[in-house]
């Protein structure tokens, strides 16, 4: 057992963790943030993507202790004052959601991409989400949604 400090979705936490605990388990089981999903447990599918200090990570491949003093964003931290993030809105508007299991990770990868590159080309978008697998949508409407989100963010 070890005590760590971290910030998740703007909130400070002090939590006791086990040495072999993954960040994914910390988020899901300790902090009850179940929006982060586990699809493979080996960093291939991206369903567990979260943003750590501005960079996307597969939370199944990061140990909980590695998150000490870090700032994490999960899907639950995207809404502002009850309003959807423009990326979430674009996913709705473009029909980019089907079963929804890849969606949280996909939205966070999109956020990390757009934070770095506000107006990506379709190819850059495809590359930006290439670590996130989706079995339902064939990705095309997700690419549409991220293009649309780029426009929404410009308007804001």
């Amino acid at each position: 057992m070890k005590e760590i400090k971290l910030k998740v979705n703007h909130k400070d936490y002090h939590v006791a963790i086990e040495e072999d605990m993954r960040l994914l388990d910390l988020l899901r089981n300790r902090l009850n943030l179940t929006g982060t999903k586990e699809g493979c447990g080996e960093g291939e599918c991206g369903a567990c993507t979260v943003i750590m200090d501005g960079i996307t990570v597969n939370s199944c491949m990061v140990m909980a202790f590695q998150a000490e003093n870090r700032e994490i964003f999960t899907i639950e931290g995207l809404e502002k004052g009850g309003r959807l993030d423009p990326i979430q809105q674009a996913f709705l508007d473009e029909g980019a959601v089907q079963c929804g299991f890849c969606t949280p990770g996909m939205v966070l990868s999109a956020k990390a991409l757009l934070d770095k590159n506000p107006k990506p080309t379709r190819e850059e978008i495809r590359e930006g989400i290439s670590g996130n697998l989706c079995r339902c949508t064939g990705y095309n409407k997700i690419v549409d949604a991220i293009e649309k989100a780029s426009e929404y963010r410009k308007e804001e």
Partner: peptide, 21 residues
């Protein structure tokens, strides 16, 4: 009509509960 999916808002916000949740 291209009605928006009735289940999508819960899914983009991470609120949709899958059995493991």
């Amino acid at each position: 009509q291209n009605n928006m999916r009735v289940d999508a808002a819960a899914k983009v916000t991470g609120k949709a509960l899958y059995p493991e949740d």
